[in-house]
Nucleic acid binder design. Structure first.
Length: 269
DNA sequence: GTCCATGTTCTTTA
DNA sequence: CTAAAGAACATGGA
């Protein structure tokens, strides 16, 4: 569920309620959901105050009052929600942080377990992550894209080049920028890179405003689904007509992922 | 039973 | 510092 807009939605719905709260108790139901796998995180979290919850790429970063940090990655099916202690604990809930005030629990559940809890300690964990898309500029984007001749769609999914975009918003951004997904990244003309830079920001901002896309199970920390799916122009719309030109949206497979695009609005060059 | 899914990382290949 | 394609991970819904 989690690309940048969904992760931002979780942070925005969680941070105001838990910043400044003390962790009273930690319940870890699966040790293998933590990296490093043999780290006992309970004593590291118990009795600490959460001083910040922020987003970096698709990571939800918690900062503690002793300056230690960890992050939660939602993988494909992760949910991070704020619950009353009496609420039923759903299957695949791997971590529960019981807070002192407010008397609520932060719960992490992830059926497919592609996500996890990653201990950072004093590090910021930014190594190998590319720039944030929302503060990107054309020159920086061009620098990332010049490094590979893979298709632009694949390049947008590479978190080392740009960090936070996933399969939905890569397709949506390329549509808005009128770029064919198979175009080699290092062959995009400067004008196309500039369009893409603007398209990425506009797409992500609109998606954040709608609280992200819920395809199946994504919810914010308040358990509310996102409303951006109905605004998708191409993702998941293969076989349907382009909203702009009525051409049928096509689907191809790239890097093992479905890629949807309008062959008329996004011509190959 | 089959196929597919919002992600990342490790292995294989050219 | 190869670079890129492919497989693997695990669960559940259509």
């Amino acid at each position: 569920m989690p690309e940048l807009p969904e992760v931002q939605t979780v942070v925005s719905t969680l941070a105001p309620h838990v910043t400044g709260a003390r962790v009273l108790a930690v319940q870890l139901n699966r040790k293998d959901i933590v990296t490093p796998i043999d780290l006992d995180i309970a004593p590291l979290l118990e009795n600490r105050v959460i001083t910040a919850v922020t987003r970096r790429a698709k990571r939800i970063v918690f900062t503690l009052d002793n300056a230690n940090r960890f992050y939660i990655h939602l993988g494909m099916s992760g949910q991070l929600t704020l619950e009353t202690p009496s609420a039923e604990v759903k299957k695949h809930t791997h971590l529960i942080l019981r807070l002192q005030h407010p008397k609520l629990e932060i719960r992490f559940r992830d059926p497919r377990r592609f996500g996890g809890i990653f201990w950072l300690g004093a590090a910021d964990g930014d190594n190998a992550l590319g720039p944030e898309p929302l503060t990107l500029n054309p020159a920086r984007l061009a620098k990332s894209l010049a490094s590979t001749r893979r298709p632009i769609k694949s390049a947008l999914l590479d978190q080392r080049l740009i960090a936070g975009i996933g399969n939905i918003y890569a397709d949506e951004s390329l549509y808005l920028a009128a770029i064919h997904p198979l175009t080699p990244a290092n062959e995009l003309p400067a004008a196309a890179v500039a369009r893409l830079n603007r398209a990425i920001k506009q797409t992500l901002r609109r998606a954040i405003a709608a609280r992200g896309s819920t395809l199946r199970d994504f919810v914010g920390a308040d358990n509310a689904p996102g409303g951006y799916r109905v605004k998708h122009q191409v993702y998941g719309r293969d076989g349907e007509k382009c909203r702009k030109c009525r051409t049928v949206i096509e689907r191809i497979v790239l890097t093992g992922r479905s890629t949807c695009y309008c062959p008329r609005c996004q011509p190959a060059r």
